[in-house]
Amino acid sequence: MIDEVAWFKIITGLIAAGMLLAGFLIIIRQYIQKRYRPSFYLAIAWLGFFLEAFFSSTRLLFDDVQSMIYFQKLSFLGLAPGFLGIMATVDSISRDSVEPRRFSMLVFILGINTFLLMLPLDEKTILIPNLIVISIGVVISNTLLVLYIRIHRNVPQPLKRLALVNVLGAMFVGVVYVFLRIVEIARPNFLPPVARVIEAIGALIQASVLSRHEQLFYVLPFKVQRLTVIDTRKGTSLYNFDWLKSDIIDQDVFSGIIQGMSMIMNESLKKGNFQEIKLEKGSVLINHDATHSLASMLIASKTSQVLHDGLAQFSRKFTRKYEEDNKDPGKSNDGHDADDLVKECFPFIPRFG
């Protein structure tokens, strides 16, 4: 027979699983629409935690020990994509790529744990993989918390409050949940078993904030300074947009320098136009439109595929906008109405100035 405490754990566990599933659906929708890698990794994490919560709760529906152990094993296996997703999220947000050595180490540890779960286990021996996943969970969740604190410290002022809410969501998962779980294990009847619901609330908060304010994904990996569109025939600037105040030289002089370098290299080497210029402390990404003699340039502290994709999209839409308005972008210096294209193509870039 299932007692009242077990039913309470089942109900709260399934509620938590539903909230984690909602968090997964929210963040995977963002990935489908905008293809941000951090949102994909975070979606994998919430899916893994959903599986863990679901199997861990449903195991209490069974009376026989072997069925309970089987579903507990499934819950531990569900944590593998959860942990890997969180680690990949941390790396992609902090450095825009996955750190292979740390990721390989986590895969190795999870592989050992999976091997142990394949063995016949009883109520005592299953404590070994249980301790492994608890240890990994504490480290992973607090790593994510530290990352969100770093984001909060570095975001521009308009995003401070949202970043703080995101930090609170991570605290629910990495601090409050862990504390309540320890209390539940040490003193089973001291507090109602609501730790899993607290964890799910924290996950849902994170998914909701990050799905609506994707700028938080890209505060740390790079800083974008300026977007410039130039007329490659005249070497003059047609449009400029700044995310970060800077002391860049006159925009037309800068455009002329870039255009002159591109022409010299193209004529000398016959290898085409510049696509990217790497500097000691930054990069200049360039997208050429030979049909209209235009080049769109993005100045950033570091190159990234998401920046390349955004620049290519902006270049296409900038040209199309002027074609629809029956204008020649090479003969117009009024590009202020392209601000809406910047918001459409670069919604993930936070503005610091």
Rank of each mutant, 00 (worst) to 15 (best):
D325Y: 12
L61F: 15
I15G: 08
M297Y: 02
L106A: 09
V138T: 15
S135L: 10
S75E: 03
V176F: 03
G310E: 00
S94A: 13
G272V: 09
I2K: 00
G18K: 10
F274R: 12
Y218P: 06
L21P: 01
A88V: 11
S92A: 13
S67R: 09
S246G: 12
S246H: 14
G111D: 02
D250P: 07
N240E: 15
R101V: 15
L20S: 11
T236R: 09
K343L: 09
T143E: 15
L119M: 07
I257Q: 06
G85K: 08
A203L: 08
L307W: 03
L144H: 11
K124D: 15
T114A: 01
P188S: 05
V183W: 01
F54G: 02
K271V: 09
M68A: 11
K9P: 00
R150E: 14
A312H: 04
G111T: 05
S237V: 12
F348M: 11
S283C: 06
T143C: 14
I112S: 04
L204P: 02
L106N: 07
Y218S: 04
V194F: 11
F49D: 09
D289L: 14
V175M: 04
I11Q: 12
T236I: 08
S97A: 15
G256A: 06
A338R: 03
D250S: 11
P188H: 07
N130A: 13
Y239L: 09
P329H: 05
V224K: 05
F76M: 01
E214R: 04
Y239R: 06
Q30K: 02
D252Y: 03
F24S: 01
Y36Q: 01
N189Y: 11
C345G: 09
L60F: 12
G23M: 09
D63N: 06
I136S: 10
